[in-house]
Design a protein around this nucleic acid. Sequence first.
RNA 1: GCCACCGUAGCUCAGUCGGUAGAGCACGUCAUUCGUAAUGACGGGGUCGUCGGUUCGAGUCCGACCGGUGGCUCCA
Length: 639
Amino acid sequence: MSAPIQATLPDGRVIELEPGATALDVARAIGPGLAKAAVAAVVDGETVELSRPLPSASDVRLLTDRDPEALAVLRHSAAHILATAVRQEIPGAGIGFGPAIDDGFYYDFEVPEPFTPEQLEAFEEGMAAVAAEDQPFERQVVTKAEAEELFADDSLKLERLAEFSDDEVISVYRNGPFLDLCRGPHVPTTASLKHFRLLNAAGAYWRGDEKRQMLQRIYGTAFFKKQDLDDHLHRLEEAKKRDHRVLGKHLDLFSIQEEVGPGLVLWHPHGGRIRHLVEDFLKKTLIEHGYELVFTPHVTNEELYRISGHLEVFQEGLWPVMEDEGDRFRMKPMNCPHHFMIYRSQTHSYRDLPLRYAELGTCYRYERSGTLHGMLRVRSFTQDDAHIFIREDQIEEEYNRLLDLEDYLLKVFGYEYRTALSTRPEKAIGDPAIYDAATERLGSVLRDRGLDFEVDEGGGAFYGPKVDILVTDALGREWQGGTFQLDFLMPERFGLHYVGADNQRHNVVVIHRTLLGSMERFIGGLVEHYGGAFPLWLAPEQVRILPVSEPSADEARSLVADLKAAGIRASLDDRDTLGYRIRAGETQKVPYLGIIGEREADTGAVAVRKRGAEEKQLVMDRSAFIERLQEEVRTRSLI
RNA sequence: GCCACCGUAGCUCAGUCGGUAGAGCACGUCAUUCGUAAUGACGGGGUCGUCGGUUCGAGUCCGACCGGUGGCUCCA
């Protein structure tokens, strides 16, 4: 008999067990409650199922339904259970991959006919039946040859198997009738799956390659607790209500019409008002931060994009050529070459740098039709763009300025955010060593600021590394915010120099940066972030005054005039009944409704209803009301 | 671009078995002058996405195209 094995718990306790003991035995040794609650374990940093025998000495942490890692295990098992159910309905269904993802799981199937909603319901019932059977998940390690035999009828699995080397550990998992090539781990039995929902089906290329066959993917989600599933489904409902396309129509902010063209946005007066307010605020802020505002044309000789390299790399994304007497023109896909040409129009001293050229530049990209999405993905958009020309020794300071500015802007709009650093992609051009050194310098800036950033390997632009800002909205969803891209390459291609203290020409370094992204995407995002209830400073209509009846109409009109004179966007609603108008004001999310009846008319007061406020109504002096509004606008209050 | 689904009044949607188009909201007119989330009556409004086919007859069945939605792919 060999020596006992030792398991070290997170609190440092060491538990001794018989050889061959499993993580489940560790749980049992701690207590029957834990043995029941445990769904998986982390052994020496690797997540494994409870039934896996432990090595002779290891660190063991047991996972219960409270651990996020356990949720991923459950969802992965849910994918297998889905495949089990699908195979019962459609025995010949080919199986692709079925991983856990952020909010749930999916499984890809190769079937002759796409799935119908009725089939999804049948699969859901099938999954419940599989769960009820309490089938254990059994892991088995096999050789490549054995695996090839087991999956002889599964061409997709065979293709995946072919990529394994002969000495790699290949594991398969079985539950009831279903066998899958799988790294694991899984929950102990199918009975762990209690609260789940299949959400939708969609096509997905095999291995994400558009040249390969299209599989049918089923998305679903699963939770340990019913409450969590309900909350998740409720969040999905909430997101639907906040959809900027729905609210954009309801609040009459913008439209996209077939007659105009796909991905081309018409800004209606109220949407346009919001955009003007954002742009005015942004431009004022940029000027305060040392930017120069420039303008450049929407159409340009494509030669500029040949020099920049975009013509080659993003050919597919450009609108077609307009010919003019042998010259070829394009709608501009980005603003950088223009800003470069402005820089190049004169000689610059090292003392002039940094130079910051900013433009709300309208660009045109021929996005593939299937990718268009409301205002968030369009074919014509206005970029909050700037190109900052610096010396190489100014990189750190300028990145710190950018991070400060972005922090300020995002707080004004009420966004949380996190930071990411993107490194060299395969399609990068230029010297890899320079690219990597620059990446390291950006990493240092982030570390020195104490930012907890993540690294997006290979996510950089073809000309340089970048720092990305990922904003989190009111529903906890992430959006692309700012991006600050470092570029040594294009300045060289465009011959951008400065004259140094040594009276020699030096290559300038460029930062391509956007703080808010495009106006379309940013404001579309704002609509969802605020759920259409814009803070006062951004609200297209800030105050609506409602006279109770005819005798108080004159008083109401004079208040509207006073509000307008004070710079407040106010209007009068003297249509139908008071109840009708209050309802209209609320559903149109007007921040303040001011009601004037004979009581208020006599005393120079106004009865104020603030959107969403606890106290339904506050009677106040009209001048106090105006001052309060002005203060709220001045501070850009988010409440 | 690819797979699936969808397209009926300004908006949200109903429309059975193929028989000639409907509701609510919005809008207009009239009445009502109202005190905190929908006053009532009446009225106007449609080439049923477009084109073609099947049929005595197409919103309905078939095909192509356009657009949208969910994904995949892409994202300077």
